[in-house]
Nucleic acid binder design. Structure first.
Length: 422
RNA sequence: GGAGGGGUAGCGUAAUUGGUAACGCAGCGGUCUUGAAAACCGCCGCCCUAAAAAGGCUUGCAGGUUCGAGUCCUGUCCCCUCCGCCA
């Protein structure tokens, strides 16, 4: 959620920034609502002040054995007026809240203009795109032939867009998780293993709800949601908390499964394991002071990039243009791994800065040592990395003519020294 | 799931028949001291405000009764103990 004061002070600037995300909003109504809200609030508080004062007087009189009926009678009317204000305030508040919840986080000024992924700006490219002396196979064919991916049986168990990692495949998926967690831990992140189900409040906090209810799985009849990313539980670790300045930055890494309904993506990436209802991911989450968040973003991008470099996978890093960004982000870098079957780079990590947008929704603050004031923290997160897509990239990039696959050196210790699949 | 007990500031505890949240510890600042400790004084929940004053809010959460609710009523969440079930 945005800072209302920011909207009040610079509506034109906000509107221009939101336009970068392709969002057109009329802020004048919100500004009017906010004005109305604050007017009601001050009027009501004045009445409450009167009530508090007179009630105390009643108490004194009664204690002294005097009659206070006149005052009580007078306050009865005040009480009714307060109730009236409260009711109206509730309405205005709810309406304003709903509007505010629906406004995306405006991108930072240095986010490039553009409408689609075509307009993203490549900032870095690493590694050699492999060339093959034979016809390379897509990962779904390699995986089935090697017996490490079983789509058929996953369909029987759950349905489309699910995969069974079988045998050595399961081992390698787990090796990837362990490798990434160890990697991130060595770079200063504390490992956390959170719940995979979260309540409504948590999803509102990170921004998935109320607007994107169609994208997440809800566990009926309970008010639980399957987490669409570890960002939800890891960020909500500190919801409704006031952190100590000296504890910042706080850095977490965690492995979880992630669940996405992908309601709008029917027909895209239907083959293979690129787009699944359930996938594994190792996530990075960070809480920083506002002045530190920009540097933290760059560092987090490097942390994720290093995972790919350790694995030897060719990738490029792009700065997303406004039109390709999500609802909650104010700046996002995507890491895209080379995927031979696609003949292009495919997103394997997304590293984002959220400013105080999530912190305001989730009430995550810290106390400044100097001023003793509470301020909202900045939150960031990024994948390091998506396990399924990494798995697919390894199969495709490191395949050999006979259909065998070379295991990256850094994974071999996690696989009893195994050098190849197949 | 059932029965009972309990949620008050970071922690531990108070609060006459309903009368407007108190105390200790910890923490912060200060006095004193060569330094430290002790002692003493002050601060020590949140919001609103550029800030302060003033004001409002705050006893898990949401409602209700009342001039006034930590206290009474309803709903709900969480924790503890026991029973049941269970990886």
């Amino acid at each position: 959620m945005m800072d209302m004061r920011r909207i009040r002070d610079n509506p034109e600037e906000i509107q221009a920034l939101l336009a970068k995300k392709g969002v057109v909003v009329d802020l004048t109504r919100i500004i009017d609502q906010d004005q109305e809200r604050r007017r009601l609030l001050t009027d009501m508080e004045q009445l409450k002040a009167e009530r508090n004062r007179v009630s105390l007087e009643v108490a004194h009189k009664k204690k002294a054995g005097e009659n206070a009926d006149a005052l009580v009678e007078e306050m009865r009317g005040v009480g009714d007026r307060i109730s009236g204000f409260e009711a109206r305030l509730r309405e205005v508040d709810a309406a304003l809240q709903e509007e505010m919840m629906a406004i995306p986080n405006p991108p930072l000024k240095d986010v490039p203009d553009g409408a689609t992924a075509e307009d993203n700006v490549e900032v870095r490219r690493w590694g050699m795109v492999p060339t093959f002396s034979f016809e390379p196979k897509p990962h779904w064919e390699l995986g089935e032939a090697l017996g490490v991916l079983d789509f058929e049986r996953a369909r029987k168990i759950a349905g489309a867009r699910f995969t069974v990692f079988a045998g050595v495949g399961a081992e390698m998926a787990r090796a990837l998780v362990n490798f990434m967690l160890d990697h991130n831990r060595r770079r200063g992140y504390t490992e956390m293993a959170p719940p995979y189900l979260a309540n409504r409040e948590s999803l509102v906090g990170t921004g998935q709800l109320p607007k994107f209810a169609d994208d997440v799985f809800r566990v009926v009849p309970h008010e639980y949601y399957l987490i669409p990313t570890a960002e939800v539980p890891l960020t909500n670790l500190h919801r409704d908390e006031i952190l100590n300045e000296k504890d910042l930055p706080i850095r977490y890494t965690g492995y979880t499964a992630s669940f996405r309904a992908e309601a709008g993506a029917a027909g895209r990436d239907t083959r293979g394991i690129i787009r699944q209802h359930q996938f594994d991911k190792v996530e990075l989450v960070q809480f920083t002071k506002p002045e530190d968040s920009a540097d933290a973003l760059s560092a987090m991008v490097e942390d994720a990039e290093d995972v790919l470099e350790q694995l030897g996978l060719p990738y490029r890093t792009v700065l997303l243009c406004g039109g390709d960004m999500g609802f909650t982000q104010e700046k996002t870098f995507d890491l895209e791994v080379w995927m031979p079957s696609y003949g292009r780079y495919v997103e394997i990590s997304s590293v984002s800065l959220f400013g105080d947008f999530q912190a305001r929704r989730a009430r995550i603050r810290y106390r400044r040592e100097t001023s003793k004031k509470t301020e909202l923290v900045h939150t960031l997160n990024g994948s390091a990395l998506a396990i399924g897509r990494t798995f697919a990239a390894i199969l495709e990039n490191f395949q050999e003519a006979q259909g065998r696959v070379v295991v990256p050196a850094v994974l071999q210790p996690y696989l009893d020294g195994r050098t190849r699949l197949g």
